[in-house]
Design a protein around this nucleic acid. Structure first.
Lengths: 117, 117
DNA sequence: ACCATAGTTCGAGAATCCCGAAGTGTCGAA
DNA sequence: TTCGACACTTCGGGATTCTCGAACTATGGT
């Protein structure tokens, strides 16, 4: 099983209730696109691990995570004082087959949104 | 050639300057997603032909067309009193190979955004 | 108990979106 | 050649959303 003992999952929409437009909206921001890319590359990371090097304040990031969670892109679970981010790869692959792979590989090929100096 | 005699194309970004996030942002709205779907299904249609049955005011539609044009999804050309919409399928296919086909087929499978009664 | 960590929530200003009203350019008829 | 209709675009103001600093919450470590 995925969640460690004591990890409290945050509420998220069910797979069958996901719709396409919110998913694309969530991906249609450079910061979120990069965060999603990293979340897929490093599943189970914490918020701050995934946001490392991005020059974006934490309160803004918190809103980005919410948008991605409400769109159904990611799961979040409270783990101690961290939140662990898990890509909802399985749900998305079933609900929207073929959607994410090209987006993620194209995102990986683009210049990253920004890095700390 | 595509443009009829006397058709004045509107300015649009060059293929190589297109980036992923604005494209996904343009697709991340239910009305625009439906318009893009129709534009691909019926290339060369006018604005009002593509928007037929959508309960959205024309000034709002005009903004949607601008967002899609600036993202690089569509070309527009003045043809008499109409604007003809052409999907930039070739440019997008070269710049973002594999991106649009799954999105468009998934959009076609979803319940449409709305229809006039 | 106390403090540090990891994030969330709140609130206000900025940016964006929505849509009615007015404007622009073109066509067809008189 | 003027007039009106048509197919949009632009303008402007209200509504929504986004951004981010400040304050708050919850947990872990000492």
């Amino acid at each position: 099983m995925w969640y460690r003992q004591g990890m409290r999952p945050l509420p998220e929409p069910a797979r069958e209730s996901l719709t396409l437009a919110p998913v694309l909206h969530a991906l249609g921001d450079p910061v979120r696109l990069e965060l999603v890319r990293r979340a897929w590359a490093s599943p189970g990371s914490t918020c701050s691990e995934l946001a490392d090097g991005l020059d974006v304040p934490m309160s803004t990031l918190s809103n980005h995570w919410r948008i991605m969670r409400e769109a159904g892109l990611i799961s979040m679970a409270v783990d101690g004082r961290n939140r662990r981010i898990r890509p909802r790869a399985d749900d998305l692959g079933r609900r929207f087959p073929g959607l994410l792979d090209p987006i993620l590989s194209l995102a990986a090929a683009e210049p990253p949104v920004s890095a700390a100096s």
